[in-house]
């Protein structure tokens, strides 16, 4: 098996540079905001996931702008964007790529699949067969594709933005737990407010909003941003807090399957990104608490009793947040 060397992560930038990067991240948020009107929180979470080096799952009913958000995010970065429309007959090789016989060179040549891009938009991911869905697994976690014993590294930065309809919609395959766990965060778009919807009609009624969207940052800058985020300080108390929240999901009577250690990792990474976005060189418990619903809810399996009682994962996380005390190291 041969491995093509991957690009090393960028060295942490200096203070001046990081200020510039934060400005760039803010520009990103603002840029996407021109397309997705009135959904600042969702946009910010999307950017947070990008900066934390994670993957994003957008889940909501059709027509609220899931695809628009993922495309806007991709377009705002001056990098390669690939889009996969998941359908029941989509094959795994369509996603990863395949080796084809080249008569000219008389060798098998690797044709890259749709996953080879900086931002990969997986539309309606739960419409694909489980087999195809799981083809994304390796890509998302390992950031590489292995075909015929050869590993091909994916682009850096690499982010999967998947959209899906709620499971009860017709013609969907539920996403396996293992794959859900690989998404750093799941956000629901929600319907826009009346004003935002009216503004959307005014501005985009006649044209494709994405056509006007220009990139505001490039791949290099995003990679630097991701590196910067890794330098954000996390106090032991904040780590304790994240662990306490994760532990609480595992011990809660309402939950059948709690958050995995990877979830805790994702939570802290996302919190770092949020801190960076707020120009803070350290993480606050508020960062963790704010992101916990997005990061945790899609990983929890509620107990049958809780389901019957009408609980949703979101409610459970809210309850846990209200109960877990924030460690106060000074006291």
């Amino acid at each position: 098996m041969t491995t093509t060397p991957r690009r090393e992560p960028a060295a942490p930038p200096g203070p001046d540079q990081s200020e510039e990067l934060v400005v760039a991240a803010q520009r990103l948020v603002d840029n996407i905001g021109t397309v997705i009107v009135g959904k600042t929180d969702v946009v910010r979470t999307a950017v947070v996931v990008l900066l934390a080096g994670g993957h994003l799952l957008l889940e909501d009913v059709p027509g609220v702008g899931k695809t628009m958000l993922s495309k806007a995010l991709a377009r705002s970065i001056d990098g390669s964007m690939r889009r996969i429309q998941f359908t029941p007959d989509l094959l795994p090789s369509d996603v990863t790529g395949t080796s084809v016989w080249d008569p000219a060179t008389r060798t098998f040549e690797f044709r890259e699949g749709a996953v080879f891009g900086n931002v990969v938009v997986g539309d309606e991911i739960n419409r694909a067969s489980p087999k195809t869905q799981s083809a994304l697994l390796e890509c998302m976690e390992e950031r590489q594709v292995t075909v015929d014993g050869t590993s091909y590294p994916l682009q850096d930065p690499f982010m999967v933005v998947a959209t899906q309809n709620p499971l009860e919609m017709e013609g969907t395959y539920p996403l396996p737990e293992a794959q859900r766990d690989r998404f750093m965060a799941r956000v629901a778009m929600g319907y826009p407010s009346a004003e935002a919807e009216a503004a959307m009609l005014r501005e985009h009624g006649g044209s494709d909003p994405l056509a006007d969207l220009l990139p505001v940052t490039d791949v290099k800058q995003v990679a630097d941003l991701v590196a910067t985020v890794r330098t954000i300080y996390v106090a032991p108390a904040v780590e304790e807090y994240a662990v306490a929240i994760a532990t609480a999901t595992r011990t809660s009577a309402r939950v059948r399957l709690g958050a995995s250690p990877r979830a805790t990792l994702h939570l802290v990474r996302a919190a770092r990104a949020r801190a960076a976005l707020e120009r803070r060189p350290y993480v606050l418990p508020d960062d963790v608490a704010t992101l916990a619903p997005s990061v945790l809810t899609h990983r929890l399996l509620l107990s049958p009793d809780a389901v019957v009682a009408g609980w949703q994962a979101h409610d459970v996380v809210r309850e846990i947040l209200a109960e877990v005390r924030v460690p106060e190291p000074g006291r």
Binding site: V238, P281, L284, E328, P329, G330
Partner: peptide
């Protein structure tokens, strides 16, 4: 100040 004291390096 409290945040810095408690959570900043």
């Amino acid at each position: 100040a409290v945040e810095l004291l408690r959570y900043a390096p």
